[in-house]
């Protein structure tokens, strides 16, 4: 006869938790690599650092198949519309990592041509300092993003990443 506690025998979870678990462990990146950081991003994807250990190795060059936009490198004013277009094409839910100083705030390129941060055109969820960041720092950012996804309440997986307010000379 059945004499055990029912809860010990059946794994109970809410559907939302399962979805979050699946989402955080299959973050397919779209590497929007423009400059130096793209080379480090390749290091992250390849032999030594191998981001596939976190389920994020399937680099998709089509935004339609990606969950995670990795902005790596400086974004010029000429490039900004392309970045926005790619972001708009990604299906929800989607996240953005600004990798490196240039994507985060323009970095050393405080000039007429460079956007002072990718967050002027797309909402950024995680900023990774460094020029370029070490691959470890990028993996660290992915882990932090995964934690954030699993912490999110209910179906809401994005926690209000927003466009940066326009700031002069920031």
């Amino acid at each position: 006869m059945f004499d055990g506690n029912l809860e010990d025998m059946i794994m109970t979870t809410r559907l939302g938790e399962v979805v979050k678990w699946a989402r955080k462990n299959s973050l397919w990146p779209m590497p929007f690599g423009t400059s130096c950081c793209a080379i480090e991003l390749m290091s992250v994807l390849t032999t030594k650092y191998d981001i596939s250990r976190f389920g994020a190795e399937v680099a998709r060059f089509s935004p339609r198949q990606a969950d995670l936009l990795m902005v790596a490198g400086w974004i010029t004013r000429k490039m900004a519309p392309a970045l926005r277009k790619i972001y708009d094409q990604m299906p929800e839910p989607k996240w953005v990592i600004a990798m490196g100083a240039c994507a985060s705030c323009g970095g050393p390129h405080n000039s007429y041509a460079v956007l002072q941060g990718a967050d002027e055109v797309v909402p950024v969820d995680m900023y990774v300092p460094g020029c370029p960041p070490r691959p470890e720092a990028v993996i660290d950012a992915v882990i932090k993003l995964q934690e954030r996804i699993s912490r999110a309440s209910g179906d809401e997986t994005r926690q209000g990443a927003a466009l940066a307010p326009r700031q002069e000379g920031a």
Partner: peptide, 11 residues
């Protein structure tokens, strides 16, 4: 060209 122009010569 020009999608990665950062104005280094001006800087």
């Amino acid at each position: 060209l020009g999608y990665l122009h950062s104005g280094k010569e001006k800087i």
